[in-house]
């Protein structure tokens, strides 16, 4: 597949007041030498819902792991004006709610309650507040009565929802989801889309599900080979058949 390394599009990063996420020229290579990000720049405004798409290995997951300081590449990232430094990490991690691709990695406690309470507890909140946060987060994903359930007894769709609740309980400013709709049956996918639509929070997701992007995310970022190759209104980018094909995407 022919991939042009410099961006195909003239990318003008839209600036807006209250940029919640600012990434400038982020570069990263894994310890084994594989270069995953080759200079990524991206802005997300408060309240925006942005989808990152691109073929396997494009670097989407790697990018997301940078957003709360789990991976540390070269370049600059700032969240609501704060750069990611060691001292800032606790605040950053409370502000960026990162949900991993596989909910079995995200839900590591025996019960749903323990898992949803993990974040608030480790933020140092008092006990009573932890309980409120758990109830609130479970309610937000419409799983109110699931606190006592065992994580390994949940269905895939329920696991995804609880995984989202585990970060919502930390009341993040921005929700970062890695492939939220993968592995779901149509009904679970539909109910997840409805949930994401109703969550009143800034959202950055990576996905291969362009139908969901078209329906839910007004702005789309295309990544390939560690570059951002396109960034713009979803409707416009989805019209560009050549661009989509060049990066292994298909119009829904």
């Amino acid at each position: 597949m022919p991939v042009k390394h410099p961006p195909d599009y003239e990318i003008t990063i839209p600036e807006c007041k209250g940029d919640i996420l600012r990434i400038r020229d982020l570069r990263f290579a894994y310890p084994d030498g594989r270069v995953a990000l080759r200079g990524v720049s991206l802005n997300v405004c408060e309240g925006e819902k942005v989808a990152v798409v691109g073929p396997n290995g494009a670097g989407k997951s790697t990018l997301m792991l940078h957003l709360n300081g789990i991976l540390r590449g070269h370049g600059s990232i700032s969240i609501a004006g704060m750069s990611i430094t060691r001292e800032n990490l606790p605040i950053i991690r409370a502000m960026v709610g990162l949900v991993f691709h596989n909910p079995d990695d995200q839900l590591f406690s025996p019960t749903v309650f323990d898992d949803v309470a993990f974040g608030p507890l480790h933020m140092g909140l008092p006990e009573a507040e932890v309980y409120t946060r758990v109830d609130e987060a479970l309610a937000a994903v419409q799983m109110d009565d699931f606190g006592k359930r065992l994580s390994h007894h949940l269905s895939a769709g329920q696991k995804k929802r609880i995984a989202i609740a585990t970060v919502l309980a930390m009341r993040p400013q921005i929700l970062v989801l890695d492939e939220p709709s993968s592995g779901l049956d149509p009904r679970a996918r539909r109910s997840l889309i409805n949930l994401l639509r109703e969550l009143p929070i800034t959202m950055l997701i990576s996905t291969h599900d362009l139908a969901m992007v078209e329906e839910l995310f007004p702005r789309m970022v295309i990544m390939d080979e560690g570059f951002v190759v396109a960034d713009g209104p979803t409707a416009k980018l989805l019209e560009d058949g050549v661009l989509l094909e060049a990066h292994g995407l298909e119009k829904p």
Partner: peptide, 13 residues
Amino acid sequence: DRIYYAMLGRGYT
């Protein structure tokens, strides 16, 4: 490793 990341992401120190 991935679980450790997930824990870090939720404030584990």
